[in-house]
Amino acid sequence: MVKAKIATTSLAGCFGCHMSILDIDERILKLAELVEFDKSPINDIKRFSGQCDVGLIEGGCCNHENVEVLRAFRKRCNILVSVGECALMGGLPALRNGIPMTECLKEAYLDGPSVVDGSIPNDPELPLILDKVYPCHEVVKIDYFLPGCPPSADLIWESLVGLLTGREADLPYELIKYD
């Protein structure tokens, strides 16, 4: 059997969603039987080796590099899944969305009470910040959404196995209830 190829990335996220992926514990061995990891922070592969079946996205887009990575994922992955609140809605980083970006930069780097001789970071290595934090589906088409902050390991496992094996995922209420 040809193993499915899977790629993952963390955009404007905290890596909590990736930790939750690892939280599937020993099931990771089963996962390794089902899939082969392509580009992902889990194996530290930096470049796509070819077309992938599934891409898991953690985090939304807060800078232009995020957008480029996300677009590359869209190109290289047949199915794209938004994983976690940040990818779905922007999450914590999107708290800045109510404040104009220039104001944010000024407060952080020029006028903040603890700033001495401030300047707005401007290294060419740094990606350009977007006017606001965008959820992934506002930038590219997303096929599936896994809610939670982070989504539980069981939810990720169930959905992923369902997706890979083509059987309907068994998602009891407890798995997708958040209060």
Binding site: H64, V67, E68, P100, M101, T102, L105, I120, P121, N122, P124, L128, I129, L130, D131, K132, Y134, H137, E138, V139, V140, K141
Partner: peptide
């Protein structure tokens, strides 16, 4: 099209370009 987002990268970085004096390298 099956899916369009209406997202425009140039517009989204315009403010940052202004603040830093940099510009977006062509994609």
């Amino acid at each position: 099209d099956e899916y369009l987002t209406g997202f425009d990268l140039k517009t989204a970085v315009a403010e940052a370009c202004e603040a830093t004096g940099r510009y977006l390298q062509d994609e």
